[in-house]
Amino acid sequence: MFIDILSWILIVIGGTFSIISAVGILRLPDVYTRMHAAGIGDTLALGALCGGMILQAGWTIVTIKLLLILLFMFFASPTTTHALAKAAIAGGLKPLIDEDRREDGLAKSEGENP
């Protein structure tokens, strides 16, 4: 019973954060800011939903597989985001920013663009 309540809480959190990340993808202004919204969907939404499912599954092989999915996404999601950010910068897409505190700005990154 207690476990049921806990997994309900986790699944509601996960569903809410999934929808929030999708709304963020729609609302935020440019691709670099949208990456932050996608980060929510890849970390907390996935983690909470998998956590809820793990509590329902108990100590079986299902739990191990869910943990493997979580572990894999933990490594894959930053790699994807980083590759996307790097590709967007190399593609000459300027981020919509208030201030740029890097010393040489974006000039160097644009020079790499083949």
Binding site: A22, G41, L46, T80, A88
Partner: peptide, 23 residues
Amino acid sequence: PTIYDRILAVNLFGTKALLLIAI
């Protein structure tokens, strides 16, 4: 608007699809 937005959205869609399959 850009190709990168589409890739980002499709990647997030894939994550959601993976969760949907598990559920």
